[in-house]
């Protein structure tokens, strides 16, 4: 298993408050906050793409690691909001990093993609060396379009996060990860080629409420740890109400779950890496501390990853 070397993030400059969204959607800023815990989100400029944002997060991550792009052995890019059907953003980000031979894989999985990328990278790093995982999403163009669904439109923001996973070095050892898919729920959260963004919120929340704690418990139990042993949970920032319920299910206080959703909204597959980048910017992990990542998204795909400092 690999090691977590560094994190990086990029958030667009444009801040969109609940008041602005409320005017557009015919609701109140307070209702948005109550439904989601979101107070504002960032929207990319019209000419700012998932590639631009992913590249910025990648450069931030590499700079923090002190690693040159030319030393990367592989790139994995998670995005459910790429600009085109194919090719996905991975090859273009690789090209803009100056890479012409390095394999670049797309993981087109909304919300859970960066966790899946990290899990894959932790196993591939022994063969490929430094693996850069990026989650980059421009959700504003997908969630805020006709026909407008305010239950969807209030949730999402734009941004990108990145994580460098390496065979050695870094502050944290990846101990284990679990991934699951149940495609019988594929229609409950979907975006067709030309159709509207469709979300069965009741199904998504109810399944996520049950499946995220189960995946976390699975990865902890098989490594002889309990939820109370974890220093911080870095979970996909889907909705504060969901994060609170996942914490409750695990019998740990909500403060054990890092949250920045009030400021950025749900940035889909970018959110967990943005959260990680912020948390690791604030403090150095202490030797032996356990960090648990978790995500759930369209498909449904979900899972958890355990890392320990040292």
């Amino acid at each position: 298993m690999g090691r977590l070397f560094s994190f990086g993030a990029y958030l667009p400059a444009r801040v969109v408050t609940n008041s602005v969204m409320a005017c557009q959607l015919g609701c109140t800023a307070e209702w948005i906050r109550e439904m989601s815990g979101i107070e504002e989100r960032r929207f990319a400029d019209e000419d700012e793409s998932v590639v631009d944002m992913g590249l910025a997060a990648a450069n931030d991550c590499l700079q923090r690691a002190g690693i040159l792009a030319e030393h990367l052995g592989m790139l994995i890019v998670a995005s459910g909001s790429g600009d085109r059907r194919f090719p996905g953003p991975a090859c273009t980000i690789a090209a803009r990093l100056g890479l012409k031979q390095t394999p670049a894989l797309d993981v087109p999985m909304a919300s859970a993609g960066s966790l899946v990328g990290m899990s894959l990278a932790s196993r591939l790093t022994s063969a490929y060396g430094h693996v850069l995982v990026i989650g980059t999403e421009k959700m504003s163009t997908l969630a805020i379009r006709e026909p407008l669904d305010k239950n969807v439109a209030i949730l999402f923001g734009d941004g990108a996060g990145a994580c460098l996973i390496s065979p050695d070095g870094g502050r944290l050892k990846i101990v284990d990860s679990v991934l699951h898919t149940d495609g019988s729920y594929a229609e409950d959260l979907r975006l067709g080629h030309n159709g509207p963004f469709e979300m069965n919120g009741r199904s998504v929340i109810t399944q996520a409420w049950r499946k995220i704690p189960a995946a976390i418990s699975e990865v902890l139990e098989r490594n002889q740890k309990a939820a109370c042993d974890v220093e911080i949970f870095l979970m996909h920032q889907a909705n504060q109400n969901l994060i609170d319920r996942v914490a409750r299910s695990l019998h740990v206080p909500s403060k054990k779950f890092f949250s920045n959703i009030a400021r950025y909204g749900n940035t889909s597959s970018a959110s967990m890496l943005i959260a990680a980048s912020e948390w690791f910017s604030q403090r150095e992990p202490v030797l032996g501390e356990a960090i648990c990542f978790a995500a759930f998204g369209a498909g449904f795909n979900w899972g958890a990853l355990l890392a320990v400092a040292g």
Partner: peptide, 9 residues
């Protein structure tokens, strides 16, 4: 959506 899991619990 959120009262449902609370009720089931």
């Amino acid at each position: 959506s959120f009262a449902l899991p609370d009720m089931i619990a």
